[in-house]
Computed example of a mutant assay.
Amino acid sequence: MNIIRYKNELNESVLAVLTVENKIYVLPQSDFLSLVREAENKGKTPLLLIEEVIENSLPMKLTLNDLDLLIPVDAPEVWAAGVTYENSKLARNYEASQGYEEKEETFYDKVYNAARPEIFFKSTSARTVAPRGEVYLRSDSNWQIPEPELGLVINKVGKIIGYTIGNDMSCRDIEGENPLYLPQAKVWKNSCSIGPSIRLAETVEDPYNFDITCRIFRKEEKVFEGSANTEQLKRSYTELVSYLLKDNEIFDGTVLLTGTCIVPPNEFTLDHNDRIEIEIEGIGILENTVKKQISQTLPTL
């Protein structure tokens, strides 16, 4: 069962469920967290609550493509883990070397093997882009890529209540120049997208067996495709969540992106009007169009 949100003809947000048969049923709750809380209050699981709705209602005549999709959960914060796959470590090392001879051991090697994972702040609800929305290129970077990632939807005590897809847009040149520039390499306007749905955690038999595929199209010609599986993840979800919670207050609906294993070739960079598709089996396809921002002139003091 996948939870979606869309905007109806009255510009209202509607919560719905997408079944494995691709049937869509409108849910009475206002949002995903309301569904989870109502299930808890009634001593039921979200799945059981949804099954009761399906049993007593008819599916919509519209398909997923007909809907104006919204972000499936208003995540108050989006966090991300880095260097959790070997491919990510190799890519970060290349960025840091900037084409020169690499050191014997870099800080990326160290964090990959360390007990403490890399976790950084990525986005807020207001900054996160909906499915089919526009992600922006950073104006002071010349080497940018999407990072396709499985996202954990968690509550304030760290329980995983669902899985989603995240696009962690990244500037390889900025991070490669200096690791202290990581926030600027990761956070700017429209640099994060989430969706198109939330897969209920209770319906996932093996969360370490998600197939992930990323495709990039330029003028509708596919210029990149890569695939991976979450079984390649170096760290467990429990481990990543536990470090996010250490001496930190998080909120219901927080999303933690778990890192990427798919990195385009080193000579590749995104361009204006590119289209990104990130597909995770059982969750759907997160699609975004790439747009170039208009450079902002700093005010004269």
Rank of each mutant, 00 (worst) to 15 (best):
I194F: 11
D109I: 06
T63A: 07
E105Q: 03
I212M: 13
D74T: 03
I250V: 15
D206A: 08
I71G: 03
V36P: 07
T124L: 12
P59Y: 02
P46A: 06
F210V: 05
N229L: 00
P196D: 02
V78W: 01
V26A: 06
G158E: 12
E134R: 15
A185T: 02
L67P: 03
T213L: 06
E281I: 09
G253Y: 04
G82Q: 00
T63R: 12
T269A: 05
I50E: 03
A130K: 13
M1P: 15
L182T: 14
Q293G: 08
I216L: 02
R138L: 14
A130W: 05
L69K: 10
Y94N: 15
E175V: 06
D252F: 15
L245H: 01
H272K: 14
P264L: 12
T258C: 12
F121C: 06
L15H: 08
N8F: 01
L48K: 14
E51S: 09
V20Q: 13
D211G: 10
D74A: 10
I3G: 00
E40D: 02
K291N: 04
A201T: 05
R218E: 02
E101C: 09
L245C: 04
T124A: 10
I294Q: 10
V83C: 06
D168Y: 01
A115W: 07
R138C: 10
P196L: 10
E239H: 03
L10A: 14
V263Q: 11
V153Y: 08
P46D: 07
V26L: 06
A114F: 07
Q29N: 13
Y25R: 08
K7C: 04
F32M: 04
S197Y: 11
L15S: 02
Q144V: 08
T203W: 04
I4D: 00
K23H: 10
E101Y: 14
Y85S: 05
K122S: 08
D271L: 15
F251C: 07
L69F: 11
I294E: 14
E101F: 14
W79S: 04
S88D: 11
G133Y: 09
P59H: 06
E21K: 14
K7A: 01
P28R: 03
V223A: 00
N11H: 05
K23C: 03
E267S: 14
F210I: 09
Y25L: 01
Y163M: 12
